[in-house]
Amino acid sequence: MSTETKAPDAFEPKIVAFVCNWCTYLGADLAGTNRLEYPANVRIIRLPCTGRIDFNLIVKAFEIGADAVLVSGCHPGDCHYTAGNFHARRRWKLFRELLDTVGVDLNRVYFSWISAAEGAKFQSLVTEIVEKTKAMGPYQEYKSIVAES
């Protein structure tokens, strides 16, 4: 990972990545062992499977100050538990619609399939998320409801 070189007041977004133990976590690991550089803004939370990732964790991530959230797991057909990611896929399809109606910025919620072999994909996706989030700025709206609570 790169060292963050920045001006003292530059905005460094916090990105929370919920990843599955069997594919994306290993993909991120591979990025590291291959010395593929990606921004240090991402905080990786390893869970057994995308099927385990409660939608509430996304809300929680925003509550504790995330500026964007990534949820990532095995490609369809590759799930260590056979079908966890299929269940997750259906859940996220619906959950995105709910977030949309509530007014949560969908440009701050990402989903991806990244296998254990795709260290480069992890690198490029995380870099892209960080760049885009930097351009959007801090997620003030969610931060403001937390600050007022």
């Binding site: 369809p76 299929f86 896929r89 399809k93 991806s112 996706l125």
Partner: peptide, 13 residues
């Protein structure tokens, strides 16, 4: 509680 192998996933990168 169920899924289909062909469920939509255009939003997944």
């Amino acid at each position: 509680g169920t899924y289909d192998r062909d469920d939509k996933e255009e939003f997944i990168r």
